[in-house]
Design a protein around this nucleic acid. Structure first.
Lengths: 118, 118
DNA sequence: ATCGAATATTCCTTGACAGGAATATTCCAA
DNA sequence: TTGGAATATTCCTGTCAAGGAATATTCGAT
């Protein structure tokens, strides 16, 4: 938990910003899967799948349950809740077309004028 | 728009997964700013600020308006809307504590048994 | 105890990318 | 039309992360 935004760790975004890992997350949306199944469906070699799964786990996006030989990976809700909160805080930007640009331009104008006077 | 998820471009995540760029986005949440102001507030040299702003613009996260010498950057709503939709599609994962793990384990059990029989 | 299946880890190489420094561009004012 | 302010671009260098290949580990079954 080293992010500066409420609950959202920036490394979460980094973890998701890789195609294979994003694909894994999409896969696991339908339920838990083992490493082998994930590797097969993504067309990855097992070691690479394990590496990506490790990154996702280290970032708290996935959790593992050992079942005999297999490791079953599944999504954890927390990162998605955090991401949801963060995006939610941009509601104003998402909804309003009022973007303060005109205000800002007038403000710039004023700065120019005061500079002229000095 | 090369992402495979409805509206969400994976490069959007990549662009946001860099601390300075995330910081820029947070800054612009309060309204548009010029390159110089952004550089100053982030403690960045102007060229680095311009580079990050270019990445964000290329990804459709920001848009520019030229005003004389200055370039005024501001947030675009679309990427946030797309991100919101995507996260929203994980509502079930975020809310339910029912995660199908038990189902999955039973399924594995059944596979084991049928293998025994062959 | 040994074997094979499932998974993790290590080492290596290569490509992408961020920062630094210098320079190019654009624009307004005088 | 020249100068300076604001911004963009280029070149260079170092770092980091992803894939390939090989190997290590763990576990159940026999």
């Amino acid at each position: 938990m080293s992010g500066k935004y409420p609950g959202l760790d920036i490394t979460t975004l980094n973890a998701l910003a890789e195609p294979n890992r994003m694909h894994i997350v999409e896969l696991l949306r339908d339920g838990p899967l083992t490493v082998g199944e994930i590797a097969e469906r993504l067309g990855l070699r097992q070691p690479q799948a394990s590496k990506h799964l490790k990154v996702l786990s280290d970032n708290g996006i996935l959790e593992v349950k050992a079942e005999a030989n297999r490791r079953i990976y599944k999504l954890r809700p927390e990162p998605f809740q955090a991401l949801d909160s963060w995006v939610e805080s941009f509601r104003r930007i998402m909804e309003d077309r009022f973007d303060r640009l005109d205000d800002y331009l007038q403000q710039l104008q004023r700065k120019e004028k005061s500079k002229d006077q000095s």
